[in-house]
Simulated assay, not measured.
Amino acid sequence: MVLPRQHARDIWDITPASWASTMAYAHQLTAHLREIHQPAGPNVIQSNGTAATQTVWHLHIHLVSRWHGDRCGPIWPA
């Protein structure tokens, strides 16, 4: 999970500069996760508002290492 240094409630509450640095760190971290876990691919998930399943009111990004046939299953409906 990646969080910005300054509090932001959601994507509409973060400055462009803070968003850019947060995403740059997420990009670096996915490279490390790839080296360590060797996944088939990652999900990079960031949700905003209750309709999008946001339940924690501090902007954050989930980095989820994925493998074919893992227990997470598809994140989008067919």
Rank of each mutant, 00 (worst) to 15 (best):
L3M: 10
L3T: 07
R5S: 09
R5A: 04
Q6D: 13
Q6R: 13
Q6W: 00
Q6I: 00
Q6H: 11
H7Q: 07
A8G: 03
R9K: 11
I11G: 05
W12L: 15
W12Q: 14
D13T: 06
I14Q: 02
I14M: 07
I14C: 04
T15D: 05
P16K: 07
P16D: 15
A17R: 10
S21E: 15
T22R: 00
M23Q: 12
M23V: 09
A24I: 02
A24K: 10
A26H: 04
A26C: 02
L29F: 10
T30K: 08
T30S: 10
A31L: 14
L33Q: 01
R34N: 14
I36H: 08
I36Y: 07
I36S: 10
I36A: 14
H37R: 08
H37M: 14
Q38I: 04
P39V: 12
P39R: 07
A40P: 00
A40F: 02
G41F: 15
G41A: 15
G41C: 11
G41T: 03
P42E: 13
N43V: 03
V44H: 01
V44S: 01
I45G: 03
Q46D: 04
Q46I: 14
Q46W: 05
S47V: 10
S47N: 15
N48R: 03
G49C: 06
T50Y: 05
T50Q: 13
T50H: 09
A51F: 04
A51T: 03
A51Q: 03
A52Y: 00
A52L: 02
A52V: 08
T53W: 09
Q54S: 06
Q54C: 08
Q54V: 07
T55R: 11
T55D: 12
V56R: 02
W57N: 12
W57I: 05
H58D: 03
H58I: 00
L59Y: 00
H60I: 02
H60A: 02
H60G: 03
I61V: 15
H62Q: 13
L63G: 09
V64D: 09
S65K: 04
W67Q: 11
W67F: 15
H68Q: 13
H68E: 15
G69K: 03
G69T: 08
D70C: 06
D70I: 08
R71Y: 06
G73D: 10
P74K: 05
I75G: 06
I75P: 02
P77G: 12
P77L: 09
